[in-house]
Protein backbone atom coordinates (compact mmCIF):
# COMPACT_ATOMS: atom_id res chain seq x y z
CA UNK A 1 0.00 0.00 0.00
CA UNK A 2 1.18 3.53 -0.74
CA UNK A 3 0.49 6.79 1.04
CA UNK A 4 -0.64 9.87 -0.87
CA UNK A 5 -1.15 13.35 0.54
CA UNK A 6 -4.32 14.93 -0.74
CA UNK A 7 -6.29 18.18 -0.54
CA UNK A 8 -9.57 17.62 -2.32
CA UNK A 9 -11.46 20.85 -1.78
CA UNK A 10 -9.90 23.82 -3.57
CA UNK A 11 -11.70 26.72 -5.27
CA UNK A 12 -10.38 28.32 -8.44
CA UNK A 13 -11.04 31.82 -9.74
CA UNK A 14 -14.17 30.38 -11.36
CA UNK A 15 -15.88 30.32 -7.98
CA UNK A 16 -17.17 33.82 -7.25
CA UNK A 17 -15.44 33.67 -3.88
CA UNK A 18 -12.17 32.28 -5.29
CA UNK A 19 -9.24 34.73 -5.26
CA UNK A 20 -8.00 36.05 -8.62
CA UNK A 21 -4.69 34.29 -8.08
CA UNK A 22 -6.44 30.90 -8.03
CA UNK A 23 -5.72 29.89 -11.62
CA UNK A 24 -5.22 26.20 -12.40
CA UNK A 25 -1.55 26.97 -13.08
CA UNK A 26 -0.95 28.67 -9.72
CA UNK A 27 -2.91 26.02 -7.85
CA UNK A 28 -0.82 23.21 -9.33
CA UNK A 29 2.41 25.12 -8.61
CA UNK A 30 1.41 25.58 -4.99
CA UNK A 31 0.24 21.98 -4.64
CA UNK A 32 3.64 20.81 -5.92
CA UNK A 33 5.42 23.13 -3.49
CA UNK A 34 3.30 21.67 -0.66
CA UNK A 35 4.21 18.16 -1.88
CA UNK A 36 0.61 17.13 -2.45
CA UNK A 37 0.15 13.96 -4.49
CA UNK A 38 -3.56 14.40 -5.18
CA UNK A 39 -5.77 17.47 -5.44
CA UNK A 40 -9.26 18.29 -6.64
CA UNK A 41 -10.55 21.66 -7.76
CA UNK A 42 -14.13 21.91 -6.57
CA UNK A 43 -15.79 25.08 -7.79
CA UNK A 44 -19.35 25.99 -6.84
CA UNK A 45 -21.79 24.29 -9.23
CA UNK A 46 -19.26 24.20 -12.09
CA UNK A 47 -16.49 21.97 -13.43
CA UNK A 48 -14.96 24.43 -15.92
CA UNK A 49 -11.40 24.22 -14.59
CA UNK A 50 -11.22 20.49 -13.97
CA UNK A 51 -9.63 19.40 -17.26
CA UNK A 52 -6.95 22.09 -17.44
CA UNK A 53 -5.98 21.45 -13.82
CA UNK A 54 -5.69 17.72 -14.49
CA UNK A 55 -3.49 18.38 -17.51
CA UNK A 56 -1.20 20.75 -15.63
CA UNK A 57 -1.14 18.49 -12.58
CA UNK A 58 -0.02 15.51 -14.65
CA UNK A 59 3.08 17.43 -15.74
CA UNK A 60 4.05 17.86 -12.08
CA UNK A 61 3.19 14.32 -11.06
CA UNK A 62 0.01 15.37 -9.27
CA UNK A 63 -3.18 13.42 -9.80
CA UNK A 64 -6.15 15.75 -10.16
CA UNK A 65 -9.52 14.24 -9.32
CA UNK A 66 -12.41 15.79 -11.24
CA UNK A 67 -15.01 17.42 -9.04
CA UNK A 68 -17.31 20.25 -8.03
CA UNK A 69 -18.82 21.57 -4.83
CA UNK A 70 -22.52 21.66 -5.47
CA UNK A 71 -25.20 23.49 -3.56
CA UNK A 72 -28.48 21.59 -3.11
CA UNK A 73 -32.02 22.93 -2.85
CA UNK A 74 -31.67 22.85 0.95
CA UNK A 75 -28.45 24.87 0.51
CA UNK A 76 -26.25 22.05 1.76
CA UNK A 77 -22.80 22.10 0.13
CA UNK A 78 -21.62 18.71 -1.13
CA UNK A 79 -18.42 17.60 -2.81
CA UNK A 80 -18.74 15.48 -5.91
CA UNK A 81 -15.91 13.54 -7.54
CA UNK A 82 -15.69 11.97 -10.99
CA UNK A 83 -13.25 9.78 -12.88
CA UNK A 84 -13.61 10.26 -16.62
CA UNK A 85 -14.13 13.08 -19.11
CA UNK A 86 -17.45 11.56 -20.09
CA UNK A 87 -18.71 11.60 -16.51
CA UNK A 88 -17.51 15.16 -16.06
CA UNK A 89 -19.26 16.40 -19.22
CA UNK A 90 -22.45 14.57 -18.34
CA UNK A 91 -22.45 16.02 -14.83
CA UNK A 92 -21.81 19.55 -16.10
CA UNK A 93 -24.78 19.16 -18.45
CA UNK A 94 -26.99 17.86 -15.63
CA UNK A 95 -26.07 20.88 -13.52
CA UNK A 96 -26.75 23.30 -16.38
CA UNK A 97 -30.25 21.89 -16.69
CA UNK A 98 -30.82 22.48 -12.99
CA UNK A 99 -29.38 25.96 -12.45
CA UNK A 100 -31.52 28.74 -11.08
CA UNK A 101 -30.88 31.41 -13.72
CA UNK A 102 -29.85 34.47 -11.76
CA UNK A 103 -27.30 36.75 -13.47
CA UNK A 104 -24.04 37.15 -11.54
CA UNK A 105 -23.20 40.67 -10.44
CA UNK A 106 -19.43 40.42 -10.33
CA UNK A 107 -19.04 43.74 -8.50
CA UNK A 108 -20.98 42.29 -5.55
CA UNK A 109 -20.14 38.60 -5.62
CA UNK A 110 -16.87 38.34 -7.52
CA UNK A 111 -16.07 37.29 -11.05
CA UNK A 112 -16.64 33.78 -12.41
CA UNK A 113 -14.08 33.24 -15.12
CA UNK A 114 -12.53 30.28 -16.86
CA UNK A 115 -8.91 30.84 -17.87
CA UNK A 116 -6.44 28.99 -20.05
CA UNK A 117 -2.88 27.91 -19.30
CA UNK A 118 -1.61 31.43 -20.05
CA UNK A 119 -4.20 32.79 -17.59
CA UNK A 120 -6.15 34.48 -20.35
CA UNK A 121 -9.90 34.58 -19.78
CA UNK A 122 -11.64 32.21 -22.19
CA UNK A 123 -15.14 32.39 -20.74
CA UNK A 124 -17.10 34.33 -18.15
CA UNK A 125 -19.96 32.35 -16.61
CA UNK A 126 -22.89 34.78 -16.61
CA UNK A 127 -25.33 33.16 -14.18
CA UNK A 128 -24.58 33.12 -10.47
CA UNK A 129 -22.93 29.95 -9.19
CA UNK A 130 -24.08 30.62 -5.61
CA UNK A 131 -27.75 29.50 -5.52
CA UNK A 132 -28.80 25.93 -4.84
CA UNK A 133 -29.34 23.67 -7.83
CA UNK A 134 -32.84 22.39 -8.38
CA UNK A 135 -32.02 19.09 -6.65
CA UNK A 136 -32.74 17.97 -3.13
CA UNK A 137 -29.66 16.51 -1.43
CA UNK A 138 -31.00 12.99 -2.07
CA UNK A 139 -31.63 13.71 -5.75
CA UNK A 140 -28.14 15.19 -6.09
CA UNK A 141 -26.59 12.05 -4.59
CA UNK A 142 -28.65 9.99 -7.04
CA UNK A 143 -27.47 11.97 -10.07
CA UNK A 144 -23.83 11.70 -8.99
CA UNK A 145 -24.06 7.96 -8.31
CA UNK A 146 -25.89 7.25 -11.58
CA UNK A 147 -22.93 8.78 -13.39
CA UNK A 148 -20.45 6.69 -11.39
CA UNK A 149 -19.25 9.55 -9.19
CA UNK A 150 -18.73 9.95 -5.47
CA UNK A 151 -20.84 12.11 -3.17
CA UNK A 152 -19.45 13.68 0.01
CA UNK A 153 -21.39 16.24 2.10
CA UNK A 154 -18.96 19.13 2.64
CA UNK A 155 -17.81 20.73 5.92
CA UNK A 156 -20.86 19.30 7.72
CA UNK A 157 -19.93 21.00 10.99
CA UNK A 158 -19.85 24.51 9.51
CA UNK A 159 -22.67 26.89 10.47
CA UNK A 160 -22.98 28.15 6.88
CA UNK A 161 -24.21 25.63 4.31
CA UNK A 162 -23.23 22.64 6.41
CA UNK A 163 -25.55 19.66 6.56
CA UNK A 164 -26.34 19.91 10.26
CA UNK A 165 -27.37 23.57 10.18
CA UNK A 166 -29.50 23.17 7.08
CA UNK A 167 -31.08 19.80 7.82
CA UNK A 168 -30.92 19.54 11.60
CA UNK A 169 -29.66 15.97 11.59
CA UNK A 170 -28.05 13.48 9.22
CA UNK A 171 -30.79 11.95 7.03
CA UNK A 172 -30.72 8.22 7.60
CA UNK A 173 -31.35 7.43 3.94
CA UNK A 174 -28.68 9.72 2.48
CA UNK A 175 -26.22 7.80 0.32
CA UNK A 176 -22.96 9.51 1.21
CA UNK A 177 -19.67 7.87 0.23
CA UNK A 178 -17.76 9.77 2.93
CA UNK A 179 -18.24 12.95 4.93
CA UNK A 180 -16.06 16.05 4.97
CA UNK A 181 -15.52 17.95 8.21
CA UNK A 182 -14.01 21.43 8.22
CA UNK A 183 -10.42 22.10 9.16
CA UNK A 184 -11.63 23.86 12.30
CA UNK A 185 -12.58 20.59 14.01
CA UNK A 186 -11.08 17.12 14.39
CA UNK A 187 -12.36 13.67 13.55
CA UNK A 188 -12.58 12.87 17.24
CA UNK A 189 -14.54 16.02 18.10
CA UNK A 190 -16.90 15.57 15.15
CA UNK A 191 -17.63 11.97 16.12
CA UNK A 192 -18.18 12.96 19.72
CA UNK A 193 -20.75 15.55 18.71
CA UNK A 194 -22.38 13.42 16.01
CA UNK A 195 -21.91 9.69 16.80
CA UNK A 196 -23.65 8.70 13.56
CA UNK A 197 -20.58 9.99 11.68
CA UNK A 198 -18.61 6.98 12.97
CA UNK A 199 -19.96 4.89 10.13
CA UNK A 200 -18.40 7.19 7.52
CA UNK A 201 -14.82 7.90 6.53
CA UNK A 202 -14.28 11.49 7.63
CA UNK A 203 -12.07 13.60 5.40
CA UNK A 204 -10.64 17.08 5.87
CA UNK A 205 -9.54 19.52 3.22
CA UNK A 206 -8.40 23.12 3.04
CA UNK A 207 -11.47 24.55 1.24
CA UNK A 208 -8.85 26.99 -0.08
CA UNK A 209 -10.03 30.22 -1.67
CA UNK A 210 -6.58 31.81 -1.47
CA UNK A 211 -3.35 30.37 -2.78
CA UNK A 212 -1.57 30.11 0.58
CA UNK A 213 -4.43 28.06 2.04
CA UNK A 214 -3.79 25.12 -0.29
CA UNK A 215 -2.64 22.13 1.73
CA UNK A 216 -3.46 23.75 5.09
CA UNK A 217 -5.66 20.71 5.67
CA UNK A 218 -5.86 17.36 3.97
CA UNK A 219 -5.45 13.66 4.53
CA UNK A 220 -3.16 10.81 3.68
CA UNK A 221 -4.81 8.22 1.46
CA UNK A 222 -3.60 4.65 1.85
CA UNK A 223 -4.09 2.97 -1.52
CA UNK A 224 -2.26 0.85 -4.09
CA UNK A 225 -2.17 3.54 -6.75
CA UNK A 226 -3.72 6.84 -7.72
CA UNK A 227 -6.77 5.54 -9.53
CA UNK A 228 -10.41 6.42 -9.05
CA UNK A 229 -11.29 2.84 -8.12
CA UNK A 230 -8.62 2.95 -5.39
CA UNK A 231 -9.84 6.37 -4.25
CA UNK A 232 -13.37 5.00 -3.96
CA UNK A 233 -12.16 2.09 -1.84
CA UNK A 234 -10.16 4.44 0.39
CA UNK A 235 -13.22 6.64 1.02
CA UNK A 236 -15.20 3.57 1.93
CA UNK A 237 -12.40 1.94 3.90
CA UNK A 238 -12.53 -1.19 1.78
CA UNK A 239 -9.89 -3.88 1.25
CA UNK A 240 -7.24 -2.31 3.44
CA UNK A 241 -7.50 1.12 1.77
CA UNK A 242 -8.06 3.97 4.16
CA UNK A 243 -7.86 7.66 4.89
CA UNK A 244 -5.76 8.88 7.80
CA UNK A 245 -4.77 12.24 9.27
CA UNK A 246 -1.91 14.18 7.74
Amino acid sequence: MNTYCADLHIHTVLSPCGDLEMSPGNIVEKAAEKRLDIIAVTDHNHTGHARLTRELGARKGIWVVYGAEINTREEVHCLTFFDTDEQLSAFQLEMEQNFVQIPNDSSLFGCQVIVDEQEQIVEEVSHSLYPGLNWSIGEAAGVVHDLGGLFVPAHVDRPMNGLYTQLGFFPGDLEADAVEISRHTSRKAAEREHPELKKYMLIQNSDAHFIDDIGRAGNRYMMKSRKFSEFRMALKGEQGRSVIDL
Binding site: E74, T165, G168
Partner: peptide, 19 residues
Protein backbone atom coordinates in the same frame (compact mmCIF):
# COMPACT_ATOMS: atom_id res chain seq x y z
CA UNK B 1 -32.56 26.33 9.12
CA UNK B 2 -33.65 23.03 10.56
CA UNK B 3 -31.08 23.08 13.36
CA UNK B 4 -32.59 26.40 14.51
CA UNK B 5 -36.09 24.92 14.51
CA UNK B 6 -34.87 21.92 16.51
CA UNK B 7 -33.39 24.29 19.05
CA UNK B 8 -36.05 26.95 19.32
CA UNK B 9 -39.50 26.04 18.03
CA UNK B 10 -42.01 25.21 20.75
CA UNK B 11 -44.79 22.68 21.09
CA UNK B 12 -48.06 23.64 19.41
CA UNK B 13 -46.54 26.15 16.98
CA UNK B 14 -47.13 26.28 13.25
CA UNK B 15 -43.75 26.11 11.49
CA UNK B 16 -43.57 28.21 8.34
CA UNK B 17 -40.77 27.21 5.96
CA UNK B 18 -39.75 26.65 2.36
CA UNK B 19 -37.67 23.57 3.24
Amino acid sequence: LLSDVMGHAREGEVWITLQ
